[in-house]
Design a protein around this nucleic acid. Sequence first.
DNA 1: TGACAATTACTCCAGTCCGAGTATTCTATG
DNA 2: CATAGAATACTCGGACTGGAGTAATTGTCA
Lengths: 210, 210
Amino acid sequence: MPPNNRSNPLALAVLSCLYERPMHPYEVAQTLRHRAKHESIKLNYGSLYNVVEGLEKRGFIRVTETVREGRRPERTIYEVTETGSREFIDWLSALITTPVKEYLQFEAALSLLPALPPGEAAALLRERINELEHRLNFSKLTMDNMRKAGLPRLFGVENEYVEALMQAELDYVRNLVKEIEGGTLEGLEMWQHWFEGDTDKRPPPPTPEL
Amino acid sequence: MPPNNRSNPLALAVLSCLYERPMHPYEVAQTLRHRAKHESIKLNYGSLYNVVEGLEKRGFIRVTETVREGRRPERTIYEVTETGSREFIDWLSALITTPVKEYLQFEAALSLLPALPPGEAAALLRERINELEHRLNFSKLTMDNMRKAGLPRLFGVENEYVEALMQAELDYVRNLVKEIEGGTLEGLEMWQHWFEGDTDKRPPPPTPEL
DNA sequence: TGACAATTACTCCAGTCCGAGTATTCTATG
DNA sequence: CATAGAATACTCGGACTGGAGTAATTGTCA
């Protein structure tokens, strides 16, 4: 099994660069950095060279030439193949049409929330609200600057998307805090009782299902 | 460096189970499954046993006993330690207060969207809208059933959260399609021109920045 | 001009993750 | 009652990730 079966989006990003013109891996990295793609796609050197190797093994890219300038380390230049181009378009299309389940850390945390006493939980959630507000503001300022620098919105859609998600999270958390503190969250009483007698600070065993 | 420095949320889930009572790893897995936590926290056996080993090495859990029933494979039962309990609460609290940057596949895809011709992109996004609508509906039905089965909302907050994100994504994508098809997306003309002359289907080099 | 930092272009490898595989026991069905 | 399938309880190896390390070159500022 050649490595890299559409698991790491970095491979997609590499294809996207080579789809424009042949490059050596380090130049791919620079390009992605300059275009701020590394904020949407995790990029580090170990993975990069690994992914490139994988793409080569699967026939999606091939070596054009290896050159040496002065006594700099050798640079291996790659180009995309015919099948590589098709893979790029197919993969990108698939990512757009079909949502994939992502395991978010906050989702995990929420699923374990009842392990904390309700008051504590509300306090922590308030902190998150603060953080989210700051980050959203910062993100919006950054976007404004990009626009002012002449970059059309088209090239910022991924940021707009992330902002939309942040806003939704903010709304949800704000409401959750209100429901905990206002006592309107279904199951709250049970939750509170669990931490009343300090018999043993064990969290409630949420009833199984299915 | 002992493995597992708060990178894998599965370790948090393991702690949460042992925080209730001692168990063997397989029972941890069963418990998480029955409580549907595996929908919020990626769970597979390789990782599970790895993570347990890591937690033991770091002193967060310890072996209570190993028993053998009949000729079944041996079961190693673990319990959480004092420092383990503290780690659990600290880690969970940190996840709640501080958002972490997640690299979403769709975010990656959006950042490469200009590689596709605008009409194509809009069509693919429409497909996603359809998928999202179906999944949202399904999720809502599932939640309804859980509620009807007597599970209070408190134990479904992680699903409510995910639904909120899906709804936000749906709204964003709907609007994006409208802007592409209505011609109001800034940068659209450049995008269209790029694919007009079928000179060479190369995507536009998005202007670098910073 | 000399020295210190940043950049270029990788390599290396210790973790980590993942999923197929294994071997036994319970369970349901004709 | 026999047998297929699910459940129990893991093991193992290969793939993948991430980040420190390397070694030369170019910029930079006193």
